[in-house]
Design a protein around this nucleic acid. Structure first.
Length: 451
DNA sequence: TCTGGGGTCCTAGGACCC
DNA sequence: TCTGGGGTCCTAGGACCC
């Protein structure tokens, strides 16, 4: 039986999705002007998460610093990401794809593979793909590219050809004409480093890679990578479309500082924050972690990391944080400036710890109670964020600068110890800090936007 | 220009056991 | 005292993806 795989890829996903929302709310279409999704544009370390076609035509690229993009295009429209909305777009997109074949593998928030081998009947693959593409466009308001091939690799390569709103095929017999002239970097799994090594050896195109002996290649990139690259360059891939839900194997969180930090106190505060986030997420997903890792990134982007096994798997923030602190102490000298820190957990299990250890931390019950309260606050903040913005009774405070806002917010948090609080981006793009009481927003603190 | 925040997998060396 | 060879686990680092 002939295998037919589709790879469906949303064009400029985050930007398209934000545009759909704005158009629905009566706004203009971001896709028609130079625009990007990014973090806080006043933070020099923010980068472009997604760019519109007009922005890309001006040379703005994904992952470029926002400050640089603004220099290229001073009139650039910047919108902040809306993750809850993106998730709902992704779910509706996946649901339409699944109607064409149940053999679906979600590859990321905006991409999936469909095994169409048993679901085409007498229809032509291109006709079905075109219908799928058009249906997503008319029902959901955004465009996708569909790549068609005999396996996942070629389908994915095909979807990357001309964009947007296109269907392309890459059958095995088309590989020499359509894929071999491309540079090695265009091949899946060839990144910056591998490209450098290959080019230094005179391997410039995917065709060069397809023809070289794997023995020579192995000396450059290792045996396994060599076999993988050689097979890929020849269009060979027999990996199945995996329909099963893959459980996460690790969780991590990182923070990049607005300015490099140089004191253990600052580092510890960041470690505390990321430990709370990671531990909360594993509890939410009913995991316990057997291994804790930390990493730090220096000014020059070099990274160092430490990891260690816990005596027993845990989901307790304090135990994870303690281990992270111990690891930090063995790794960082306490003075070399750091731009980023991160904490991860792995060796995840679902086991429940019924057995009690003689060496149990005497504060364990206190730690657990603290975690429960943290989890409740997070849940309350999530619920509040999911509700519509209308709450006319909330007191609204405006501040001319971020510093003043921060001071006032700290004061408000001290005064309202029973309140939950969350930072939130309002539908009009206003970045604000909200205090909740009994599920209602009672105060909203906003930094006045400079015109 | 000056670079985010998540993830996955692989490799190589050392410790330890038989 | 010095010695082989294989297996497994752990750790650090690197490369890639979106």
């Amino acid at each position: 039986m002939k295998r037919v795989i589709f790879h469906i890829d949303v064009n400029s996903a985050f930007l398209s999705w934000s545009a759909v929302k704005q158009v629905r709310e009566g706004g203009s279409d971001l896709r028609l002007v130079p625009s990007v999704v990014s973090g806080d544009p006043s933070d020099r370390r923010s980068i472009v998460t997604a760019a519109s076609m007009p922005a890309k035509k001006l040379g703005i690229k994904t992952a470029q610093p926002i400050s640089m993009a603004l220099r290229t295009c001073p009139g650039l429209v910047i919108v902040r990401g809306d993750w809850a909305w993106y998730k709902s777009c992704s779910e509706r997109f996946t649901a339409i794809c699944r109607a064409y074949s149940p053999v679906l593998q979600k590859f990321s928030i905006d991409e999936c593979f469909l095994d169409m081998s048993l679901h085409l009947g007498r229809q032509e693959p291109v006709a079905v793909a075109t219908e799928l593409k058009n249906r997503i466009r008319s029902e959901l308001g955004f465009t996708v590219n569909v790549g068609i091939g005999p396996n996942k690799l070629l389908a994915k390569m095909a979807s990357d050809f001309e964009k947007p709103d296109k269907v392309h095929t890459l059958w095995t017999e088309e590989v020499p004409a359509k894929m071999w002239p491309l540079g090695v970097r265009d091949l899946l799994w060839v990144g910056k480093r591998t490209e450098e090594r290959l080019v230094a050896y005179g391997i410039n195109t995917i065709g060069d890679l397809a023809r070289i002996q794997t023995g020579a290649l192995a000396r450059l990139v290792g045996i396994r990578a060599a076999q993988q690259l050689h097979a890929s360059a020849n269009g060979v891939d027999d990996s199945p479309v995996e329909t099963d839900f893959q459980e996460a194997k690790s969780y991590s969180a990182e923070r990049t500082f607005a300015q490099d930090i140089t004191t253990p106190k600052e580092l510890d505060r960041a470690m505390f924050n990321v430990a709370c986030i990671v531990a909360h997420r594993i509890r939410r997903d009913r995991f316990k972690a057997g291994c804790v890792s930390i990493f730090i990134k220096y000014r020059d982007f070099s990274v160092a990391q430490r990891q260690s096994q816990l005596p027993r798997p845990t989901d307790v923030t304090a135990l994870i944080l303690n281990e992270a602190r111990r690891l930090v102490a063995t790794l960082w000298d306490g003075v070399t400036p750091l731009r980023q820190v991160g904490l991860g957990v792995s060796k995840l299990t679902h086991e429940t710890d019924l057995q009690l250890s003689l060496f149990e931390d005497p504060n364990l019950e206190y730690y657990r109670q603290w975690d429960r309260e943290y989890d409740e606050r997070m849940a309350a903040a999530r619920d509040a964020a999911a509700r519509p913005a209308a709450d006319p009774d909330a007191l609204v405070f405006h501040y001319p600068t971020g510093e003043e806002a921060l001071a006032a917010i700290k004061q408000a948090v001290r005064e309202h110890r029973n309140c939950t609080f969350a930072r939130r981006i309002l539908p009009d793009g206003t970045d604000c800090f909200e205090l909740f009481e009994g599920g209602k927003v009672i105060e909203r603190h906003i930094v006045k936007k400079t015109p």
